[in-house]
Design a protein around this nucleic acid. Structure first.
Lengths: 194, 194
DNA sequence: TCCATTTATCAACAACTGTTGACTTTCTAA
DNA sequence: TTAGAAAGTCAACAGTTGTTGATAAATGGA
């Protein structure tokens, strides 16, 4: 009953979008605690009260801002030898591509001190990463393999985008693909030895 | 002039230690923003004013609490084929052993939203991880190799100890050593192919 | 014992936080 | 044009934060 709105380019929707955009930017840059409602309002050139009026609370605003869709490709159909390369290429698109927003940065940056963000990030793992990895190899192993894959990818994201560790920032895309790719390949396929 | 105090088991030193212990525990569990001075004082069964009296400010308290000494072994002397295993074993000691405190947890948890903690963590990388990796392989490569090693280790720490991703928490020490070890070996030695 | 230094407590400050209600402006439809 | 809803502004609330100064209790050597 609240879902069908075929035509509505209304004025308010634009400011609502402005607020959400400012919130995503600031949450992604400074985390949940570091970005106040007043900061968001200032970035959206609007009164702080409007932020609450459009989104009921800061928690709800964060919940709307912390939406992530990794759009991982189905690994079943591609070459089994290119699993690692496929994953790391998609990773770079998610974090550096123009299409994907700062969703992952929002979650990762806030997850260390905000339990809701941590739970959301665990859900991304369970609903988006795990199934993709489970599609290859034996399903009983899926959690372990997906966990290993995530440990490498989240670590790379931490070092390169949040912590900004100079040597990791300096890595070229090719460097990353050639070094991290084989690791992901081994983790995702579940092989122990070299 | 302020360094030589041969005998001083004074009463105040004990409460100072209590405060620091409480601070390390709470900073490691909730991060810089999530742990207030009043929380620290309550955990140390003392008045909040005492926390400021002993350490001049919250920032200084955090600086005292966020001290990390990884005590990594010199990789030059050990078997070059066991570099990865040596690193991951030391990692497990640092994070789960009884001797090492929550130092790394403090830094990692706060680094996402507290610039000082991020800088401290980068210093740990530059002063403790990088030199150890530089001791093997050619030095020109050291930053890149140490960066790759750190990306895997920090990612594992994130998933297992901060985010507490269930499949990563469930990994046994042997599982971790057998899977992460070879990755670190490859990163640290600077080999591309399998 | 007594006095001086250390150790600890208390109340309060200013700044910031999320959130709210009353009010004013702007837009839209009859 | 005008009534009414929508959109936005303002000031203030209650709570928490780091920090400080005055004051009380405890300690320890003479």
């Amino acid at each position: 009953m609240t879902e069908n709105q075929p035509k509505k380019p209304s004025k308010s929707d634009r400011t609502r979008a402005h607020i959400l955009e400012a919130a995503r930017h600031l949450f992604g840059e400074h985390g949940y605690d570091g970005a106040s409602i007043r900061d968001v309002a200032a970035h959206a050139s609007i009164d702080p009260a409007m932020v609450i009026r459009y989104f009921r609370s800061k928690d709800e605003l964060f919940a709307r801002a912390a939406v992530v869709d990794l759009q991982l490709p189905a690994l079943r159909v591609i070459d089994r030898n290119a699993v690692g390369e496929t994953l790391i290429r998609r990773f770079l698109e998610v974090w550096e591509g123009p299409a994907s927003g700062p969703g992952m940065a929002i979650l990762l940056r806030s997850s260390t001190s905000h339990e809701f963000a941590a739970e959301k990030l665990r859900e991304v793992f369970a609903n988006q990463v795990r199934p993709v990895v489970a599609a290859i190899g034996n399903p009983a192993d899926a959690g372990r393999r997906a966990g290993l894959v995530s440990s490498q990818l989240l670590g790379l994201a931490m070092c390169r985008y949040l912590l900004r560790l100079p040597p990791v920032v300096a890595l070229s895309h090719d460097d990353i693909i050639q070094n991290i790719g084989p690791t992901l390949q081994r983790y995702a396929m579940g092989k122990d030895g070299p």
